[in-house]
Computed example of a mutant assay.
Amino acid sequence: MSFLSPLSLSRDAVVATLRAAGCVFAEDEARLLLTTAGSGPELAALVDRRAAGQPLELVLGWAEFRGLRIAVEPGVFVPRRRTEFLVEQALAQVPEARVVVDLCCGSGAVGAVLAAALGPVALHAADIDPAAVRCARRNVAAYGGQVHTGDLFGALPPALRGRVDILAANVPYVPTGEVALLPAEARDHEPLTALDGGADGLDLLRRVAGEAARWLAPGGCLLVETSERQTAAAVEAFTRGGLTARPAVCEERYAQVVLGTVSLAVPGPPGA
């Protein structure tokens, strides 16, 4: 079904089409779509996709994240603006970081903006989803980043143990029973592996917190985003993993981050 004829491509027509489809910020979205489209038929196709419910970022092919345009594509988690708070906390905690890991990297947005802010770093990103890995490689290439495919720490080069200054792990934290309650843009267009965090939403967080101390350098920091009601349990998981944990909150962006630090490096298993 076409929502907009290529013959009716005025800004007002685009705005009206988007507003009728329920887009709250129709004027802003129209401006972005008009700027992105290279031709009338292309604009009509983009408007049709957006009006049909596809996330704006996937229609555009990029998402703005802390001043950078991050490439996104179908089947890849779209970076949230609230996650910029995690980046800010990382930069404040370890402003001289030289080794950065973006775990559960999705598009690689977190790693890319950290590298852009820090200057020359050894940047590694990892995700279990091959589509995310492909997308992340596009976004971290300008910073010399390496992207690995695999399950959490199992994807990383063993040589990184005890050397990581910033370990950003934007793990999925939606409880399984609440995934169906997410907005359709997320539920229908983003991979379940990037949303479902298990029965209480903390399955992957606990796994990361349990191993992170082996990978962090002295003074290094693990940062994980979570929800307000999960914060206490997340702090407990960090503490059990040998980390000194504290929560940080940004009410304006409704963002909750838990930070964990180590004062001494924890060695990896014998023979590593």
Rank of each mutant, 00 (worst) to 15 (best):
Q54W: 09
L56R: 10
F65A: 03
F65M: 01
L43V: 01
G38L: 06
T35M: 15
R50F: 02
A45G: 14
A26W: 00
L34S: 07
L58S: 04
T36L: 05
L58Y: 04
A51I: 13
R31P: 00
A26H: 08
L43I: 05
T35H: 15
E29P: 11
D28M: 12
G67R: 11
T35A: 15
E29V: 09
L56Y: 02
G38N: 08
G40P: 10
E57W: 03
G61I: 02
R50G: 05
A63C: 13
A37K: 05
A30V: 12
R50E: 11
F65W: 01
T36Y: 00
A45C: 08
A37M: 03
G53S: 10
A63I: 00
P55W: 06
V24M: 06
A44Y: 01
R49P: 07
E27M: 02
A37V: 02
P55T: 01
A63N: 02
A52L: 04
A52Y: 13
T35Q: 15
W62K: 04
S39R: 08
E57F: 05
F65P: 00
A44G: 11
E29K: 09
P55S: 05
A45M: 08
D48I: 07
V24I: 13
S39T: 13
G53D: 12
R49C: 07
L46H: 11
E57D: 14
E57Y: 05
A51G: 06
F25R: 12
W62F: 14
G67L: 02
L56W: 00
A26L: 00
A52R: 15
R31T: 15
R50D: 09
G67N: 10
L60M: 09
A44N: 04
V59G: 02
A37D: 04
L33I: 06
A63M: 01
A44V: 12
G53P: 07
A63T: 07
R49N: 02
A37P: 06
R66K: 12
E57R: 02
A52T: 03
A63F: 00
R66W: 13
E57Q: 15
V47L: 04
V59W: 04
